[in-house]
Amino acid sequence: MNITLEIWRQKNARSKGKFVTYKLDGVSEEMSFLEMLDYFNKTIVEKGGEPVAFEYDCREGICGCCGLHINGYAHGGAHETTTCELRMTKFKDGDKITIEPWRSRAFPVIKDLIVDRSAFDKILRAGGFITANAGAAPDANAIPIRKVDADEAFDSAVCVGCGACVAACKNSSAMLFVSAKISQFAFLPQGRVEAVQRVQKMVARMDELGFGNCTNTGACEARCPKGIKLTNIARMNREFIGAKLGSQIVRH
């Protein structure tokens, strides 16, 4: 099929970007979306042009590298799908596809479609860990954890850190990302010990880095490729208030 691509081109962080329109012929519906971009880049390079920079690595939806705004939707808008899992069968001959990088002040553009998501790492460094030195741990079965709690912790822990939640949010809020990590540890006895400090430090860091607040539109949950639930945000708020009030609220 033949398609038209409207792509955000930006030389580097210092320069101004703009949309550039390209015609692309010979696209096969057997391609993944990113294979279509690979093919597009090959045609550009062979003509002596500069290819579009975009981020990827595993190409199977687990590393969290890829993340494009496609026709106005983070990851293209398909249910629980990362950009690399998107297939060209979703498009048809003659389509125009608009591709942008994540839009958020906290994620500045590095080049073309690549943004700097190091703010996520910075939030995790503020407290997204358990202080357990290697060698100090007791036997893995010494502390039983209810299956429901372990499962809930897992469901929050599957976040891939792609940033779609921030990109989809009109406030550029990182609450879904931050709350997923806080929830994971809140459900585990190993994580409870530092829960009061953790939530306060991570939320403070999140605010410093320029992410917006949550106004409960639910766009983050709708666009999350891993199905992270909005209830994580409620849990984080509860943890946060509890921490600020100086007492830990009983969880169940």
Binding site: F129, A132, G135, P138, D139, A150, A153, F154, Q184, Q190
Partner: peptide, 22 residues
């Protein structure tokens, strides 16, 4: 064996049985 202990202490949510054990 030590490795599993360490990963659990770091908050890795391995699958568990209803007893709460791994």
């Amino acid at each position: 064996n030590q490795t599993i202990d360490q990963l659990v202490a770091n908050g890795v949510p391995f699958a568990r049985e209803y007893s709460g054990y791994l």
